[in-house]
Amino acid sequence: MQQDPSGMAPEDLSHAGSVVDKAIEYMMEQRIAPISIASALLGGALGLLARTMDDRSVAAVLRNALASVENGELAEARQGQPPQA
């Protein structure tokens, strides 16, 4: 797995993201609740991180995700979307 020139993202990140997007689309078509989908994906991601990184690195990934939320990046992605319950 190669990193991009800035050293930030693996080159296969786009492919992995596409696969996850298709899985989410499929689960939505199966009428699985969004919170169930998100919880399953988060649990799987945490499990993968736990198997491949030390706790300090996992915590750094989670802090980065939290910073994205606090900086409004998710709000930007939500624009134009209907409110979720």
Rank of each mutant, 00 (worst) to 15 (best):
M1V: 10
M1P: 10
Q3G: 10
D4K: 06
P5M: 01
P5E: 02
S6A: 14
G7P: 05
G7H: 04
G7M: 05
A9F: 15
E11F: 10
E11T: 15
E11S: 11
L13M: 12
L13Y: 12
L13I: 11
L13P: 09
S14L: 07
S14T: 11
H15G: 13
H15V: 10
H15K: 09
G17L: 02
S18Y: 01
V20C: 04
D21I: 02
D21A: 15
D21W: 03
K22Y: 03
K22F: 00
A23T: 08
A23Y: 07
M28I: 12
M28S: 08
M28V: 14
E29S: 07
Q30K: 13
Q30M: 04
I32Q: 03
I35C: 08
S36Y: 01
S39F: 06
A40I: 02
A40Y: 05
A40S: 09
L41D: 00
L41W: 04
L41S: 01
G44T: 04
A45P: 05
L46N: 09
L46D: 08
L46W: 07
G47Q: 03
L48A: 13
L48R: 11
L49E: 04
L49H: 07
L49G: 05
A50P: 05
A50I: 09
A50N: 14
A50G: 11
A50Q: 13
R51A: 15
R51I: 00
T52Q: 10
T52Y: 08
D54H: 11
D55I: 13
D55W: 08
D55R: 14
R56C: 02
R56A: 15
S57V: 10
S57D: 14
S57R: 15
A59D: 05
A59N: 02
V61F: 09
L62A: 14
L62K: 12
R63D: 09
R63Q: 12
R63F: 03
N64H: 15
A65F: 08
L66M: 07
L66S: 03
A67S: 14
S68L: 06
S68H: 07
V69A: 09
V69D: 02
V69Y: 09
E70H: 13
E70R: 14
E70T: 15
N71T: 13
N71C: 05
G72R: 01
E73M: 10
L74Q: 11
L74S: 09
A75P: 06
A75H: 07
E76Y: 11
A77D: 05
R78N: 09
R78F: 08
R78E: 10
Q79G: 05
Q79R: 15
G80I: 00
Q81D: 02
P83E: 08
P83V: 09
Q84S: 12
A85V: 14
A85W: 05
